[in-house]
Amino acid sequence: MNLVCIVCPNGCRLTVTIDGEDITVTGQKCPKGKTYAIAEMTEPKRSVTTTVRTVFEEAPVLPVRTNGEIPKDKIFDLMKLLDGFVLNKRIKRGEAILRNVFDSGVDVIATSGMLMKEET
């Protein structure tokens, strides 16, 4: 089966053959492609990027993302979880707002430091 690797801009066209328990991947220019293809066939994962509500007037929403990939079928579960989240702390870029979502080992982190008061 053919797929396009989405790990980096190269977008290598991969061919995956499954023979029982053996998965062969060809077409990748780097090892990440093989890892991606195997994951796609067994348990596809994705990173999720979105925003969360805050109590701060200057930033009604703050951008966040998962700092790794979660199972693809958990994307909307995560969105539902974050729907109810309201940030009331001024956190730094990179700080986690939720840890180990769905026992994936992946955190949800802030991707902007805009809430931090600037020192003038």
């Binding site: 509500r53 969105m79 539902k80 729907d83």
Partner: peptide, 16 residues
């Protein structure tokens, strides 16, 4: 323009 032409629907996070 007139009263029926609202641009936005409401907040995000209202997926429910």
């Amino acid at each position: 323009a007139n009263q029926q032409s609202k641009v936005l629907l409401g907040d995000t996070k209202g997926a429910q």
